[in-house]
Design a protein around this nucleic acid. Structure first.
Lengths: 136, 136
DNA sequence: TATTAATCCTATAGATTTAATAGGAAATAC
DNA sequence: GTATTTCCTATTAAATCTATAGGATTAATA
């Protein structure tokens, strides 16, 4: 299941990408428009800023803005920040690899084989999709 | 993330598919061989039996067996029983559809569009993979 | 300079889900 | 009738997710 954090984050990014204004977009505006609890959204946008996807400006007329063109923001990056590993098991994760406790040899593991296929397919979607695709 | 339930379930099914013996396979044997807590595995195999994937025999020399040939057991079916919906959000689920609380119109929702793609790719993997593939 | 509006930060509560355990009832082989 | 195994229900323990609270900091502007 996609977490609400990720869902809200993607919706917020889309909202910002669609924004016509030159000014940064304040959290309150997004929260209201997209039906997202404001405080929760604050924390989400904060992590997106810390990861480099978003920039921010404090104070009056402040808010969040994209650091790159929407077409340059890949879903792989966004998903890894919001949702964590793209793989369904750590033992097939490219960026968050971890060995399984059980499983003496993962080359013989049937789950491993299957999940590599799922990972590759999902990865292909996220690599070929940018924020520009979402917001169009 | 794949739940342990699903992971254990897949490993157990693979173990049973690989079994040479004519007798049903007892839970204890699988649990020991695959490093799975036995009581937990019991409950997992029980749900697989109730869903029709496995058959069982009680008492001495009892255990679990496959109801169909491994090549006839699709991952779509197994995954839906063990892990639930294949889609990452209920609003793009074929078998467990649910509308989102937020989201006035899901055709305009950027998350919706993206998750349909992920679903279709994952579905393709699961539709084209059977237990025979896992256990070979 | 005071006011207002915004991000930033930390902590924590509440809710849900997952993982695992416990204890025995029912069935079957021998 | 004893040993073995599935079957069933309940419960605990742990982890994670969702959301809220309360204020500190920063910046624009009147």
């Amino acid at each position: 299941m996609l977490s609400k954090k990720t869902k809200y984050g993607l919706k917020a990014l889309t909202y910002i990408a669609r924004s016509k204004s030159d000014l940064p977009v304040p959290v309150g505006e997004i929260a209201e428009s997209e039906n997202i609890p404001q405080k929760f959204l604050e924390s989400i946008l904060l992590t997106l800023r810390k990861s480099g996807v978003l920039g921010s400006k404090k104070g009056k007329h402040g808010g969040y803005y994209l650091r790159k063109e929407p077409s340059e923001i890949k879903m792989t990056d966004v998903m890894r920040v919001l949702e964590g590993p793209i793989a369904m098991v750590p033992c097939v994760s490219l960026n968050f690899y971890e060995k399984c406790d059980d499983c003496p040899d993962e080359n013989l593991c049937s789950v491993h084989k299957l999940m590599i296929q799922v990972r590759d397919n999902t990865l292909q979607v996220f690599r070929n999709t940018t924020l520009a695709d979402l917001s169009s």
